[in-house]
């Protein structure tokens, strides 16, 4: 088949999508005994921005050919997100399987990913913009640094160019920025960039025959350092009620009120 960019149907891109399993949005969360994280007995799902990253990778592949590989780091249960991705059309999966990946800082997760994919030659790495649990938005950026690749964040659109890609970034207050960048590159994808597909029954049936490479903690431990993150305490904010009477003339009361709203309650 002829493609617009040349007579040979070559694989345009090999895309890696980093995915994370996070607690389900409507799951009632309970603190663990130590008050350092939530209890494990909740339902989990794919981190929403990662689902959009996967969808974008699949769309790029459908448009230009190539391969989509998905990767996650987490305990055995996290394999679920990879199975889902395979059912939706990813070609193969890599599972860094160990309980120690739960709560590992973003820098070390990025190091583990980099170590796990060193034999692969990807053109693009997608991550979701951020995770719905910790919400650091760091793994993709750090991975780019480790790989020595350029990166762009909050991506709303990706367009293939002869020299690489042109991406649209979402900025504050309705502004957008267009960036042209060479490949390989890392992109962190914004939710809502596309419309998510459903896994088809055929896809679900085929997923179990697709390759799933397991990577153990030992396989990547040489690249991973000490966990840089420690949650000291997690708590549910206490509901408090306080009534205060402001006294003085109306002008004085108004002044005090504005001061309190601005500096104490910080709503102005």
């Amino acid at each position: 088949m002829l493609r617009p960019n040349g007579p040979v149907a070559r694989c345009w891109v090999k895309i890696l999508v980093c995915m994370k399993q996070v607690p389900q949005k409507d799951a009632p969360l309970k603190l663990n005994e130590g008050g350092t994280w939530i209890r494990e007995d909740v339902s989990y799902e794919v981190n929403e921005p990662d689902a959009y990253a996967l969808e974008e990778a699949l769309r790029q592949k459908e448009k230009h050919g190539g391969e989509v590989v998905v990767i996650t780091a987490g305990p055995a249960r996290a394999q679920q997100v990879l199975r889902e991705a395979l059912a939706k059309g990813a070609d193969r999966a890599i599972h860094l399987e160990d309980d120690r990946f739960v709560g590992l800082d973003a820098f070390n997760v990025a190091r583990a990913f980099a170590a796990a994919i060193k034999e692969d030659a990807f053109d693009l790495i997608f991550t979701g913009l951020q995770s719905d649990d910790y919400g650091y938005a760091q793994t993709g950026v750090l991975l780019a640094e480790l790989m020595g690749w350029p990166h762009a964040t909050i991506i709303m659109q990706i367009e293939k160019k002869d020299s690489g890609i042109r991406v649209k970034r979402e900025l504050e207050a309705g502004f957008f920025q267009f960036v042209e960048m060479p490949l390989p590159a890392v992109l962190t994808i914004q939710s809502g960039i596309n419309k998510l597909r459903y896994a088809t029954l055929i896809g679900i049936k085929q997923a179990k025959n697709k390759p799933m490479r397991k990577v153990s903690w030992d396989d990547v431990s040489g690249a991973v350092g000490e966990n840089l993150q420690k949650v000291e305490k997690l708590y549910v904010p206490q509901k408090t009620k306080k009534t205060e009477y402001l006294e003085g003339s109306p002008a004085e009361v108004a002044k005090k009120l504005v001061d309190k709203l601005r500096n104490e309650v910080r709503v102005l």
Binding site: I204, K205, K208
Partner: peptide, 14 residues
């Protein structure tokens, strides 16, 4: 099976 659960999820999401 895992397949059953995935199909349930697709149907529920739909």
């Amino acid at each position: 099976t895992e397949e059953h659960l995935q199909i349930a999820k697709t149907a529920e999401e739909f």
